[in-house]
Simulated assay, not measured.
Amino acid sequence: MYDYSFWDLWENIIFPGLIDTLIMLAGSAITCGIVGFIVALVLVTTDPRGLRPNRAVYEATSTIVGLLWSLPFIILAISIIPLTRFVVGTSIGVWAAVFAITFAGSPFIARLLESAFKEVNPSLIEAARSLGASDWQITLRVIVPEAVPAMVSQMTLGVITLLGFTAIAGTIGAGGLGAVALTYGYQNFNDQVMYGTALLLVLIVVIIQLAGNALYRKIK
């Protein structure tokens, strides 16, 4: 058991852990957003009621998304350690965590964005089609722009979920607030550190929610 003052821990452990968590969150939000957006477009386009119905592509993509999302994050992160080490060069640290979170979070983000795309009024799509718009034009100029408010709302939920993944990743060598809470809080029987890091995570969630709500209202 180590005996450090809270402020020493804040300066040397908690604050660096906060920075690592924010880097993991920002990096995984970008990568999951990009991958999830592409996968969501594939799902909504090849859906039986989509612009280009393709049962084989839709079922294959949907099955892969469902399988990846159904796996608990910590199990998935451990199972892809050889792949993480091959791609990133290491299986621990912030960027290894971003890679693992991208694997686990992209299917969830894809489902959220797919739901946002499906909220677009079908009459708008039919109107664009009647004016001679191509499928590509309908997707980029009708579906995506009309879905932006719903996308913002769904991504707010998605980013909060990714924050939870960063905390879990900290328990398997990623660093961040999760590692701080486990190592210097729980294992060191330091309630100040443990509950202090939990409070920081709650504060980050509140900030994300407020920012997402404000952006949604502005766009809507």
Rank of each mutant, 00 (worst) to 15 (best):
D3V: 15
Y4H: 15
F6G: 03
W7E: 05
L9N: 14
L9E: 15
W10T: 09
E11R: 09
E11Q: 14
F15D: 14
P16T: 12
I19N: 05
D20Y: 05
I23H: 05
I23D: 00
I23Y: 00
M24N: 10
A26G: 09
G27T: 01
I30Q: 04
I30M: 06
I34G: 02
G36P: 10
V39I: 14
L41P: 11
V42E: 03
V42D: 03
T45K: 14
T46R: 02
R49E: 15
R49A: 13
G50A: 04
R52M: 13
V57T: 11
V57W: 08
Y58C: 09
T61D: 10
S62I: 01
T63W: 15
T63R: 09
V65E: 09
V65F: 12
V65S: 08
L71C: 11
A77H: 08
I80P: 08
I81C: 08
L83A: 10
R85S: 09
V87F: 09
G89R: 02
S91D: 13
W95S: 15
A96I: 04
A100L: 10
A100P: 04
A100R: 07
T102N: 01
T102F: 05
S106C: 06
F108R: 03
I109H: 02
I109F: 01
L112D: 03
E114H: 14
E126H: 13
A128F: 01
R129L: 14
S134D: 05
D135A: 12
W136L: 12
W136A: 11
I138P: 06
I138D: 08
T139L: 14
I143E: 07
P145Y: 05
E146Y: 03
E146M: 06
V148C: 03
M151T: 12
V152D: 00
M155K: 00
V159T: 08
I160G: 02
L162D: 04
L162Y: 07
G164S: 05
A167P: 03
A169R: 01
G170R: 06
G175V: 07
G178A: 01
A179E: 06
V180G: 01
A181R: 01
T183G: 13
Y184T: 01
Y184D: 00
G185Q: 03
Y186A: 15
Y186P: 06
Q187Y: 08
N188D: 12
N190W: 06
D191Q: 14
Q192L: 14
Y195K: 04
G196V: 05
T197K: 01
A198L: 14
L200C: 03
L200W: 02
L200P: 01
L201V: 07
V206A: 11
V206K: 15
I207C: 11
I207K: 02
I207S: 08
I208Q: 00
Q209F: 07
G212P: 05
G212V: 07
G212E: 06
R217H: 12
I219P: 08
K220T: 15
